[in-house]
Amino acid sequence: MSKLLLLSIVVGLVVIPIWAAREPHPLRAMRLALLGLAVLHVGYALFARFVLPRIAA
């Protein structure tokens, strides 16, 4: 389970931009993709720092 969660950043790196690309306007789509990726990175860091140790324990 924790290994799958660790993999989430790899999945997010591909899925979030593909999801953002659905927005018709390219600049808005790009902004959405960059924002999504930034949120993914911050969220992953928080997950690795606070959540993962509890799951692993």
Partner: peptide, 8 residues
């Protein structure tokens, strides 16, 4: 990530 974006 941007490659996936432009692919999509």
């Amino acid at each position: 990530g941007l490659s996936a974006f432009f692919f999509a």
